[in-house]
């Protein structure tokens, strides 16, 4: 018997849950990629080969990791436009966080004259 708390999709939209379904092998491959990127971050962090550029590389790797997780594990790959828009909105929110943070950190030690 169908769950009485469940509802058919509104406004005539239909969604086939089997479409583009993830395979265990595919998900595991993505997981390995994320682990590989983590190992790279760890190496860059502990070896010191990149010097002052290590931070930027680590942040870039973290961004790629987050993107891969969102696209595959959080099913953005199968998402409709609203879901994609929601994900982009969250990226915009993160930008707000960083840009306004930087308004403090990049100007904190300037001398106010006048």
């Amino acid at each position: 018997m169908a769950d009485p708390h469940s509802h058919p999709p509104a406004h005539g939209t239909s969604y086939d849950v089997t479409k583009d379904a993830d395979t265990p092998g595919g998900l595991f491959a993505v997981y390995l990629v994320v682990l590989l990127l983590f190992a790279t971050t760890f190496f860059v962090s502990s070896s010191g080969v990149l010097g002052r550029y290590a931070l930027f590389v680590q942040l870039a790797i973290a961004t790629v990791q987050a993107g891969v997780v969102a696209y595959y594990f959080m099913h953005l790959r199968q998402g409709d436009r609203v879901v994609t828009l929601t994900a982009l909105a969250s990226v915009f929110w993160t930008l707000i966080l960083f840009v306004l943070f930087m308004s403090d950190y990049m100007t904190r030690h300037r001398v106010v004259t006048g």
Partner: peptide, 11 residues
């Protein structure tokens, strides 16, 4: 709290 004057003006 010690944030920059410029940032404080913006906020």
């Amino acid at each position: 709290a010690g944030i920059s004057y410029y940032s404080a003006l913006l906020f």
